[in-house]
C-alpha cells in the first residue's frame, strides 16, 4: 500500500463524535448562506438600494 493510500485509509477511519459529524457541515452551510445574505445586503446598501442606506 502506498503512503498516499495509507494516509487516505487513516483519514477514513477518523471520526468526530456523532453529533459533530452531522452538526459541522450543517452549521457551515447555514453560515455560508447567512454570509451570502449579509454580503448581498451590504452591497445593496453601498449601492443605495436598501433602507437605511447612506
Amino acid at each position: 500500500m502506498s503512503l498516499k493510500d495509507e494516509q487516505k485509509r487513516v483519514q477514513r477511519e477518523r471520526r468526530y463524535p456523532p453529533f459533530w459529524e452531522r452538526a459541522v457541515p450543517v452549521m457551515v452551510a447555514v453560515i455560508a448562506i447567512v454570509i451570502t445574505a449579509l454580503l448581498v445586503i451590504a452591497i445593496l446598501v453601498a449601492l443605495g438600494m436598501f433602507p437605511g442606506s447612506p
Binding site: 483519514q11 477518523r14 459541522v24 457541515p25 457551515v28 454570509i35
Partner: peptide, 18 residues
C-alpha cells in the same frame, strides 16, 4: 466569518482538531 467557517470545514474534512 467566511474564513472561520472555511477553517472549520477544513478541519472537519480531515477529522482533526475538533
Amino acid at each position: 466569518v467566511g474564513g472561520a467557517a472555511y477553517s472549520a470545514w477544513l478541519f472537519w474534512r480531515k477529522r482533526v482538531l475538533l
